[in-house]
């Protein structure tokens, strides 16, 4: 599903709204999340997930073609941690943790 397909679905579900308003709603949501991350804030949507920016330290990288060492500056990278409910839904309703076999009792 792309952003325009998402907008089309919402337009079909909400016939009382104009298409430009729906486009603005979708744009506002992702813009607000982006702006929050750019400010260094996090965004937490219970049941869905949390967006945050993780800091990566500066390091010495290598040009893979020449092997020359090049300094890589520190940077922030966007990170999304899916919420519990969404993790379960994606996994067909199962809790996707490593809880599978229990340790034998009193071995």
């Amino acid at each position: 599903m792309t952003k325009s397909e998402l907008i089309a679905h919402l337009a079909a579900e909400n016939p009382h709204l104009r298409q430009p308003d729906i486009e603005l709603i979708v744009a506002t949501i992702f813009e607000e999340i982006t702006a929050a991350l750019a400010r260094g804030d996090r965004v937490e949507l219970r049941g869905f997930g949390a967006f945050s920016a993780k800091q990566r330290d500066a390091r010495t990288g290598r040009n893979p073609r020449t092997g020359a060492a090049v300094p890589v500056e520190g940077k922030a990278v966007p990170y999304f941690k899916p919420g519990k409910e969404l993790r379960e839904r994606v996994n067909g309703g199962q809790i996707p943790t490593a809880r599978t076999a229990r340790a034998p009792a009193n071995p």
Binding site: E32, I33, A36, G40, R42, V43, E44, L45
Partner: peptide, 9 residues
Amino acid sequence: MNTLTRANL
């Protein structure tokens, strides 16, 4: 650091 929620969006 602030945390935005559904209410802010």
